[in-house]
Design a protein around this nucleic acid. Structure first.
Lengths: 153, 153
DNA sequence: ACGGAATGGTTGTAGCGTCAAGTTTTTGGT
DNA sequence: ACCAAAAACTTGACGCTACAACCATTCCGT
């Protein structure tokens, strides 16, 4: 019960902390930043929509809306996938890359300052294992396994 | 980094799991349920809006909207606080009590099944301490301390 | 090789949360 | 005693997310 109440509080408070720093300093929501960051780390800065949805723990519908808005802002571009005519690729533009590079340091500092620095090295290790155990239940199909366990996928 | 990615994934996935079960089985969002639950545990099933906002880790603005909707549905009623004319009290109605009682068992089962049962007793203990450490940073003013550390405040 | 099911994606809508602004009452400094 | 600042909400507008419906393409069993 004690653990559960704390977990709820974290889930309720963390998004606000991340969003407001990024919104203020970079004009991006945390989810938008995360989408751009996942693209920036991919081959050719390009991913199929479904793959991107998995890496961002999101729905295709949600992602579709967000990518459209990012495209309107010139940070991302979409083009049909040559290999599968059903699929769409999303690629980071030069402006999108610049936006991630500009936003990253402040975001990392925020995460360290507000989250990780409060934990001992041992607790970080414990949290990693707890995270694995929880995600095994929350994401039973292992859809976004690629993110938190990059060796599979 | 591994711990951080897992924490993000949890924060992204957990609300959906909680909301969809409660929405489906009880017609309530998790936040609405939590508001009703906090009232149900309070003296006279009544709390001032500010106190309720702290216990639910939320903003007064957010809470005000939610309580208005709950009031429209007859689950809660609002009345001015006699001691402080600025303040508003929210009280659970009989229908609201019934709604919490009806929703609780399914919700508890869901939480156990999807979250806590995946952890060992030792991990639950670790999570409690990690939660304390994180909340000390996320909620530096200890606004909603009352929730996760009921002995103070 | 054909037809139904599954996959991949988009869009409209409705509901919820955030932000900024406003009102009223209380507190505190002088 | 007075006035400014703070506290306690409420409200309206706007943006984002979930849900459901939809279309196109590919897969697969027979």
């Amino acid at each position: 019960m004690a653990a559960w109440l704390r977990l709820i509080a974290i889930v309720e408070l963390l998004p606000g902390v991340l969003d407001s720093q990024l919104r203020r300093d970079a004009g991006l929501s945390h989810f938008e930043y995360f989408v751009l960051a996942m693209l920036s780390e991919s081959e050719g800065r390009t991913l199929r929509m479904t793959a991107l949805a998995h890496r961002t723990n999101s729905t295709l519908a949600r992602l579709s809306h967000v990518v459209r808005r990012l495209e309107d802002r010139g940070l991302v571009e979409r083009f049909p996938c040559p290999e599968d005519a059903r699929a769409t690729n999303a690629r980071l533009t030069a402006a999108g890359w610049d936006a991630v590079v500009a936003a990253a340091p402040g975001h990392v500092a925020n995460v360290r300052g507000n989250v990780l620095d409060g934990l001992s090295a041992e607790q970080v290790r414990q949290l990693t294992e707890i995270g694995d155990a929880l995600l095994a239940r929350l994401d039973p199909k292992g859809r976004m396994t690629a993110l938190y366990r990059p060796e599979d996928s």
